[in-house]
Write a protein that binds this DNA or RNA. Sequence first.
DNA 1: CTGGATCCACTTGGATACTG
DNA 2: CAGTATCCAAGTGGATCCAG
Lengths: 136, 136
Amino acid sequence: MCAMDTADRPAAGRGPCAAIPAEQMDSVRQMLDRIGDKWSMLVIAVLEAGPLRYTDLQREVPGISQRMLTVTVRQLQQDGLVTRTAYAEVPPRVEYALTPTGRSLHHVVTSLITWVADHHSQIREHRTQVEDAGTT
Amino acid sequence: MCAMDTADRPAAGRGPCAAIPAEQMDSVRQMLDRIGDKWSMLVIAVLEAGPLRYTDLQREVPGISQRMLTVTVRQLQQDGLVTRTAYAEVPPRVEYALTPTGRSLHHVVTSLITWVADHHSQIREHRTQVEDAGTT
DNA sequence: CTGGATCCACTTGGATACTG
DNA sequence: CAGTATCCAAGTGGATCCAG
């Protein structure tokens, strides 16, 4: 897969499929601002196992504050990645679930988590090595 | 992986492998703070096509400021994702390239870009729909 | 050319308290 | 239970000037 088409390569002539088609560039950046923030990915990952209510969601994503949970799910809702279903019951119950679009993120989330699992120790190691090198 | 099985299920007790192993949870969050920031992914994506020098890098990532480019590449360097090679020439030349670890991110970057390409218009659409609904 | 350094606006995110 | 509102600290990121 060659990252979409080769519309134009104005920059240095670096082969047929240099990087991102540069039109996508901006879209990618925008979406990174959304799903690449501190919590969205985690919420999505957690919701992939099935719908969850507010409190459960907060418990499944350790460290998230009420504020950020609220903000995050509302954004994801606006983007059409999750749905919010409120049941008018005596103890209010609200359930969040992934939309098909949200579920389509599965592959991205999975590959990310897999990668992190494979490399995070290596990266932490390298980070301290660099610090130690400065001690010389 | 287990995060994708049994889509329907009561919310509460969700079994032993609900989503992320919860030890990974924190690692994933930390790494998201790194590679999920505004520019790292873009820089990595651009570098996948081959080494680039500072100025070229800045041109290939439209919108990035000098400061953020410097900050970003330095972080990626600390994490062992890119290398920085300075040539002691008359006009200083510095080249940045991916390390094997950095290259291992390829799959993540690719699936992300692909996903964005597939869904960003849909998301933008949904976002405006929500806004319009509020106008009612 | 390749940055480092500084100033500053804006955003993110946590803590807390309060509401339906 | 499921939020909302507010305050506040820290970080992000852009612009600009400066230096090797």
